[in-house]
């Protein structure tokens, strides 16, 4: 897939409307021939706009966070690869059935580290979205991921995964080819992969399809990503009997799916701060933050012997749960 860029500014989320209004005012002032005379007003408008944007994003409801995570201009795996990787070498195919573009894999250099990158890709153009099934991978995607991760471990390369999926693809062919088995196998093998593994939820962390490339020594979420056992709509449809704006809002709240919720519940290790107004407003800065985190984690993890890593990974997973002690 070719490089994707050209972030449109045409798509605005409902809660961003006040900022969009200010943007319009600023633009119209700029367009005036005597714009220079309005320098003071412009500066003041700009300051208002910036603080309003910051405030809006500080107080987002969980359901709004989900919408930001799904923003059509939000950077995807390919964007981050292009922004942070030197010498990326894509590797295709699962060696069994096919090549699923919904999961991108390949060698790359991130900062000083040679790594294997594995990430969900949703697609930017309509054709890409169709090819990638909107980021919903088939079994061959998960098997491709496992094949490349095993390759990385063989040569001592750390694995970096970017999670961004509404969920694994729920279709007839996916079932026939063993979606459940493919994900299950990834979970088991990632838990004992003898090389550092770091994972970042960069957008949507939808259930088993996300976890299928998400078992890692260190897991982070971008500030406006979500990660949960089910999407708010899926949850609302089942538990609230109907998915609608009101129920989705309630479900998103109940599921504790934001980055800070997951950090508080010790389900992820870190939250990576996004630029003011989220990653889509400044992909380069988002990418820099992401890169810094990855570089630091890998540097730290490289201190451990592979068997120590696997041991520590197990102990970390082993602690997760909320239950009374049983005799």
């Amino acid at each position: 897939m070719e490089k994707t860029n050209g972030y449109s500014t045409t798509y605005a989320l409902a809660f961003e409307q006040p900022v969009i209004e200010l943007d319009k005012q600023i633009a119209s002032l700029h367009e005036r021939q005597n714009a220079a005379e309005y320098a003071e007003e412009l500066a003041s408008l700009q300051a208002n706009r910036d603080s309003l944007l910051a405030k809006l994003y500080r107080d987002l409801s969980p359901w709004d966070v989900v919408k930001v995570a799904r923003h059509p201009d939000r950077p995807q795996t390919w964007d981050y690869i292009n922004l942070m990787c030197r010498d990326f070498r894509e590797l295709h195919g699962d060696r069994h059935f096919g090549d699923d573009p919904a999961i991108v894999t390949g060698f790359g250099r991130i900062g000083p580290h040679k790594v294997m990158i594995v990430g969900h890709q949703k697609g930017r153009s309509t054709q890409q979205k169709i090819d990638c099934h909107w980021g919903c991978a088939h079994p061959e995607g998960y098997r491709k991921a496992l094949h490349k991760m095993t390759l990385a471990a063989k040569f001592g390369l750390p694995v970096v995964t970017f999670i961004d999926t509404p969920g694994a693809y729920p279709g007839l062919k996916a079932e026939e080819r063993g979606q459940a088995e493919a994900i299950a196998l990834n979970l088991r093998e990632m838990s004992r992969l003898p090389t550092p593994v770091v994972a970042v939820v960069i957008g949507e962390g939808g259930s088993g399809g996300a976890l299928g490339i998400g078992v890692a020594d260190r897991v982070a979420m971008l500030e406006y990503a979500w990660y949960s056992v089910i999407s708010p709509e899926g949850c609302a449809a089942i538990l609230w009997k109907e998915a609608n704006e009101q129920n989705n809002t309630a479900a998103a709240q109940a599921l504790a799916l934001t980055a800070r919720d997951n950090l508080r519940n010790n389900l992820v290790d870190d939250v990576i701060v996004e630029p003011v107004g989220a990653a889509h407003r400044n992909p380069k800065l988002a990418s820099d933050n992401l890169q810094n985190w990855i570089v630091e984690q890998i540097r730290d993890l490289k201190r451990f012997k592979p068997q120590t890593l696997v041991q520590r990974r197990y102990e970390k997973l082993r602690r997760i749960g909320a239950h009374s002690s049983g005799a």
Binding site: L187, G208, S228, V229, L267, G321
Partner: peptide, 14 residues
């Protein structure tokens, strides 16, 4: 149990 449930998949398979 949202994320807690999801992570049981990772725990049991590990």
């Amino acid at each position: 149990e949202s994320g807690f449930s999801l992570m049981q998949m990772a725990k049991t398979t590990a």
